[in-house]
Design a protein around this nucleic acid. Structure first.
Length: 634
DNA sequence: TGCCCCTGTCATCCT
DNA sequence: AAAGGATGACAGGGG
């Protein structure tokens, strides 16, 4: 804060502007940058510049507003200062037209350059001050704004936000057909009695109905029941439940999101962003081109990676500082670890000899190599603990870096000089010098230097209990192991880091085999832990959905039972009515001699013309046989 | 003390 | 081939 106040009191806004226009003041720029947490990639700034998608990476993560907070949060406020100012896209073009030797990467930069070039330094100063002041705003609001801008593709954030929401809304499923209790007897019997469409035997119908027991529908399958609505609904339920299964599976937790959204890393940057940003300087250093046209932002990514142009030198320098900053923090972290007084090898051994430790197999694999410290063939590690750049080349190139232990502060001009003058200088190698050897703090008495890495002394239980008292019980076992081995990364970083970044991290840092083994184990266990959590959650969701399905099916079963009872009731009523009607008709019939017709010997049969005939049952039976044989022949 | 549940971890298979 | 996701199985901790 002292530096920050000094920066402000010294007119840091204008100074920062000056720094943006010239490389002369990079040190002050770095000073500010070190004080402020670095920004993430400001993709929303792209929208202000109106560049293509690839130019999003041409925008340096180094924000002109000081780096903290998203540009989408800053720019509206900056714009309020001068409503008559041109829009950012136009502003960028004007800035280019003015020939200002500075490539504005944010709208604020463009504003500043535009203002200075137009002779309005006061406006620029005020704008920068307002923008920097607004940069202290809540991160949540700014992030929200950024996401909206990205989603909306530069349009109205509200529209952008409403789009996915509207698209994500599930359309209401069509209303299920309502269950209808069919008029099982009325329609059919009425039509048949009228005899409008076919001939049939009323006795057949009567006997058919009579032959059905009271619970005859018990054995009727769903397909046999010509009930609309409810039955078909029940039949469709299987598909519906299948969708539920899919939904259950689709509710899987996004591991990457869970990790990235982890609020633990308040100071340490997002590993993904950190890695992606930290690797840019390598590319820039490795790529050399003499075509300044390619360096214009907003053209393509390849052009951005060619930093010969003066503008891009500015960019590269700041990006170098950004990457330096990452390693400065890591150096400080390592140095703090190395200077810890309470480093106890026994504690380390206890951590790795816990009865519940499950990582023994993989750890054992590195026991024989625990005393080996990785060393680059071009480097030698000095025993004093300071970073040892002992080769002539390194000593000449990084002479200023050797004082890294106390107030490690690389001078940017040196780095810029290396970047610009040594055309054959490999950027990766360059930064290996800056980044490498973070294990110097491991003392020769550290457990990895012993032939038996994790010896348990005789008073193991006592020491163990003391250790457990001293150890933060909130730490997981892996966190404790990492802490004991002074792993310079958090468990979250190790687990959540992309594999490329993870491998580059392992190669960049000097780590013992034991440390590398532990880091890999931590990563594997962490990944698997989350996978297991997701698996159990998914399994639980499936079980819950199955329970819901069981409940729904039971409800359907009850409904079907009720419908079956109603059908049986209707059928019985129809049976009774038909029986009464049959006997009523026969009671009124007389033969030629005026005698009553015996219903056991005769049957009523409807003809196609609607007339009703009294037919002896023998003829009815023979007719049925003939029809049956015809049906079989067909 | 046994039981149950939760969680971490490992092994294995698969992508 | 390596990395990682998915999952069954096992073990330990805690209620």
């Amino acid at each position: 804060m002292k530096h920050l106040k000094r920066w402000w009191s010294a007119g840091g806004g204008l100074l920062h502007l000056t720094l943006l226009l010239s490389l002369a003041g990079l040190r002050v720029d770095l000073d500010l940058y070190l004080l402020l947490p670095p920004p993430t990639l400001l993709q929303d700034e792209l929208l202000f510049l109106g560049g293509p998608a690839s130019s999003a990476y041409a925008l340096s993560p180094f924000s002109a507003s000081g780096g903290w907070g998203r540009a989408g949060h800053l720019h509206p406020k900056g714009r309020e200062l001068d409503p008559a100012a041109p829009p950012e896209g136009q502003l960028l073009r004007e800035v280019r037209a003015l020939g200002v030797p500075f490539v504005p990467r944010t709208s604020v930069d463009a504003w500043l350059v535009h203002s200075v070039a137009a002779g309005s330094a006061d406006e620029a100063h005020g704008l920068l001050g307002a923008a920097a002041a607004s940069s202290t705003g809540g991160a949540g609001a700014s992030v929200d704004g950024g996401s909206q801008a990205v989603q909306g593709g530069g349009g109205d954030p509200r529209a952008a936000r409403s789009g996915p929401l509207d698209a994500g809304e599930e359309e209401k499923a069509p209303a299920e057909p309502t269950a209808q209790v069919p008029d099982a007897g009325g329609c059919a019997s009425e039509r048949h009695l009228n005899g409008t469409d076919t001939s049939f035997s009323l006795e057949d119908l009567f006997q058919l109905l009579s032959s059905q027991p009271e619970n005859s529908l018990e054995g009727i399958s769903l397909g046999d029941i010509p009930l609309p609505g409810s039955i078909s609904d029940g039949m469709n339920s299987s598909a519906h439940y299948h969708v539920n299964f899919s939904q259950a599976i689709s509710q899987d937790v996004n591991l990457h999101e869970a990790i990235l959204l982890c609020p633990n890393n308040t100071f340490r940057r997002d590993p993904t962003a950190r890695t992606s940003q930290s690797q840019e300087p390598f590319l820039q250093l490795n790529s050399h081109t003499t075509n300044p046209e390619q360096t214009l932002p907003g053209t393509n990514l390849t052009g951005f990676l060619s930093p010969v142009d003066n503008h891009m030198r500015n960019l590269t320098s700041q990006d170098l500082l950004y990457d330096l900053d990452i390693n400065i923090f890591d150096e400080i972290n390592l140095m703090s670890l190395a200077t810890e007084d309470n480093f106890d090898p026994i504690d380390v051994s206890q951590l790795f000899d816990e009865p519940d430790s499950d990582s023994g197999l993989s750890l054992d694999s590195s026991h024989n190599n625990t005393s080996v410290i990785k060393s680059n063939s071009s480097h030698s590690v000095c025993d004093e603990g300071a970073i040892g750049y002992c080769t002539d080349h390194e000593s000449s190139s990084h002479h200023d870096l050797e004082g890294a232990v106390g107030g490690y502060y690389p001078e940017p001009s040196k780095l810029c000089h290396l970047d610009q003058s040594d055309s054959d200088f490999h950027g990766d190698l360059t930064f290996q010098h800056v980044f490498h050897n973070h294990t110097y703090h491991l003392q020769p008495t550290a457990p990895e230097s012993t032939s038996e890495p994790f010896p348990w002394p005789g008073k193991s239980q006592k020491i163990r209990s003391r250790y457990l008292e001293d150890t933060d019980r909130n730490l997981s076992r892996d966190e404790q192991r990492a802490k004991a081995l002074h792993i310079p990364f958090s468990v979250d970083e190790i687990v959540g880091m992309p594999v490329d970044s993870f491998n580059s991290m392992l190669s960049r840092y000097y780590l013992t085999d034991l440390q590398v083994s532990l880091i890999r184990d931590i990563r594997r266990r962490g990944k698997n832990k989350v996978a297991a959590q997701n698996c159990r959650k998914r399994k639980l969701d499936i079980i819950l959905n199955l329970e819901d399905d069981v409940c729904n099916l039971q409800a359907k079963k009850e409904t079907l039972k009720r419908e079956q009872a109603q059908c049986n009731k209707a059928i019985n009523i129809m049976k009774q009515k038909l029986h009464d009607l049959y006997h009523d008709i026969f009671s009124r019939l007389r033969d030629d001699q005026g005698r009553p017709v015996n219903p056991n010997h005769y049957a009523l049969q409807c003809t196609h013309d609607g007339s009703i005939l009294i037919v002896p049952k023998e003829l009815v039976a023979s007719g049925h046989k003939k029809e049956t044989q015809k049906g079989k022949r067909k």
